[in-house]
Amino acid sequence: MTPPPHAASPAIRLLTPADAERYRAIRLEALATHPEAFTSTLEREREKPLAWFEERLAASDVFGAFIAGELVGTAGFRREDGAKTAHRAVLWGMYVRPQARKSGMGRLLADAVAAHAASRVEQLHLVVVSENLPALRLYKAAGFAEYGRGVKALKQNGRYSDEIMMALFFGEGGTSRPR
């Protein structure tokens, strides 16, 4: 008898181009079910070939959360590349499937990206739609602090949403990450 998915030990790892098909499926699901939470759109990414997702995984640090071998969450890490901004990175594309929410999987993903960032940059930034209260709670619990608001930053179907800008500082670039 197979244990239920929530009973299996979760695993977090960097995704590779070999994960492109699973990544594409969860990414399109995220864009379809929560279009307000992402700057990209389902219409834009649905038309992309699998090779586009393979390239994205080859060129990016995208973490996957797995339960019983099933990809149930993703979060990306992208370092800024400008001479004056290379000390910063962005956490992007965070999504956890409904069946894995409230299981601690989101926190595991946020912590994995933060640990990855801590040895590479001084600051980890993110933006989150102001109405996404569960995500705001998660990021605050993971040590991120709000530093600004993008008023009417996103517009979809004639409706505006504000974005909350948050940051987590490491080492000499700011305060240490709270635990």
Rank of each mutant, 00 (worst) to 15 (best):
M1H: 14
M1L: 14
P4A: 07
P4L: 02
H6S: 08
H6C: 02
A7L: 00
P10N: 09
A11H: 12
R13N: 15
R13E: 14
L14P: 00
A20I: 10
E21R: 15
Y23H: 13
A25I: 03
A30D: 06
T33G: 11
P35N: 10
E36I: 04
A37K: 06
A37G: 12
S40L: 11
E43T: 10
R46T: 08
P49I: 09
L50S: 11
A51D: 13
F53V: 06
E55I: 01
R56S: 09
L57Q: 05
L57D: 03
D61H: 14
V62Q: 05
F63I: 05
G64K: 02
I67Y: 04
E70S: 11
E70D: 10
R79C: 05
R79D: 02
D81W: 13
K84C: 08
A86H: 11
A86S: 12
H87Y: 09
R88P: 07
L91P: 01
Y95L: 10
Y95P: 03
R97Y: 08
R97G: 13
R97S: 15
R97D: 12
R101K: 01
K102Q: 15
K102I: 06
R107N: 01
A110G: 10
D111V: 06
D111E: 15
A114F: 07
H116D: 03
H116K: 08
A117I: 04
V121M: 14
E122L: 14
Q123P: 00
V127K: 05
V128G: 07
V129G: 03
V129T: 15
L136Q: 12
Y139F: 11
Y139C: 02
A142P: 04
F144T: 01
R149G: 02
R149W: 04
R149C: 09
K152N: 10
L154D: 01
L154W: 03
N157Y: 05
N157K: 12
R159V: 15
R159A: 13
S161E: 07
I164F: 06
I164Y: 05
M166L: 12
M166W: 13
A167Q: 12
F170W: 04
E172Y: 10
E172W: 10
T175K: 08
S176R: 08
